[in-house]
């Protein structure tokens, strides 16, 4: 079995996973160990009984070597005796890995050293916590791939069939998100959630892009200028309608607010990369229809509609 170095062209999903997965997620933590004073006979017995190919050798708590099926074979080839102590046959030059290393680092270690297994050490306590073989890595990757694939497939399948599964003359899916004014640590989060749902609904990327950009600008406006508001997205088979309804100060002159470059934003908003009088014009450009209703002292209701022109089903 040979694991290719990561820089070879491989499906990028697997490459990504080798960066994401940590040693501790795939290693075997039920480690069988022997002591240096045990014999090669013990090695033979344990390898056979457990169907494994290598055993770690511990002197009390300290890792002192690795003995593998190759060592057993060379012992037999040398006409060595099976009652020989492990100490004389084991590999003492041990290469270990840390439990928090990512798989990609370890795969390269397998290549560089030619070893079949690595003892896994906890970085803080320096104690042995497991053993890692190439087989563990492959099992771990396959498992993770399957879980991710299945989860996303289920979400996507359920969501993208919603309009076919619900029988009516006209179905509308409404999603509502609360926007808190002044909370810049979260500004953009609600659009991000909406965008994820649109992906799951199987809506075309270009439509999602238009909705996401307009909705993000509207969300930023609500965060910047108002105490709070609601973002309401209405998804229908032929169009997506979004309203942001806030309890803010209202817009005194909508015509002026629509002009590119016109802004009442204070400097701290500009420092965030917004407030240059591009928000409303951006929303207008991304959408097919846009309406603003605003009352000074009451709040603003901004609505924009994006038609789903493409054949998305």
């Amino acid at each position: 079995m040979k694991i290719r170095p990561i820089n070879h062209k491989k499906p990028s999903k697997i490459r990504e996973l080798t960066y994401e997965l940590k040693v501790e997620q795939v290693m075997c933590d039920d480690v069988i160990t022997l002591s240096p004073d045990d014999t090669m006979n013990d090695v033979l017995r344990i390898l056979r009984d457990n169907k494994i190919r290598g055993i770690l050798v511990l002197d009390k708590d300290r890792l002192v070597g690795v003995v593998s099926i190759e060592d057993l074979i060379s012992c037999l080839v040398d006409k060595g005796k099976l009652n020989e102590k492990i100490e004389n046959r084991m590999t003492k030059d041990i290469v270990t890995v840390y439990s928090d290393e990512s798989i990609v680092q370890v795969v390269n270690k397998f290549e560089d050293n030619g070893y079949g297994r690595f003892p896994v050490i906890d970085r803080d306590t320096k104690k042995l916590v497991g053993i890692l073989t190439k087989g563990d890595i492959i099992d771990g990757l396959l498992e993770k791939l399957e879980i991710e694939y299945r989860q996303e497939e289920i979400h996507r399948y359920r969501a993208s069939h919603i309009f076919e599964d619900v029988i009516s003359d006209n179905s509308t899916l409404i999603m509502q998100y609360h926007i808190k004014g002044g909370d810049f640590k979260k500004a953009g989060e609600q659009t991000s959630k909406l965008r994820k749902n649109l992906l799951r609904l199987g809506i075309m990327p270009e439509t999602i892009r238009r909705v996401a950009i307009a909705s993000f600008e509207a969300e930023m406006n609500t965060v910047i200028y108002t105490p709070e508001g609601e973002l309401i997205a209405k998804i229908q088979p032929d169009k997506i309608t979004i309203n942001t309804i806030d309890s803010g100060p209202g817009i005194p002159n909508i015509k002026q607010a629509m002009r590119q470059g016109y802004s009442t934003a204070p400097d701290w908003v500009r420092e965030l990369g917004f407030g240059a009088g591009m928000g409303l014009p951006n929303i207008k450009n991304c959408s097919d229809e846009m309406k603003i209703k605003s009352k000074v002292g009451k709040g603003t209701d901004l609505q924009f509609i994006i038609y789903r022109r493409e054949n998305e089903t």
Partner: peptide, 30 residues
């Protein structure tokens, strides 16, 4: 200026910016 980025950038482009707020990441995503 994130609004400019949202208005003009094409999918797949690389964004050079001096801003480091989380809104840069949301802008990129959207």
């Amino acid at each position: 200026l994130m609004s400019d980025v949202l208005a003009f950038i094409k999918s797949g482009a690389l964004l050079l910016t001096g801003l480091t707020t989380i809104q840069v990441v949301y802008t990129a995503e959207n």
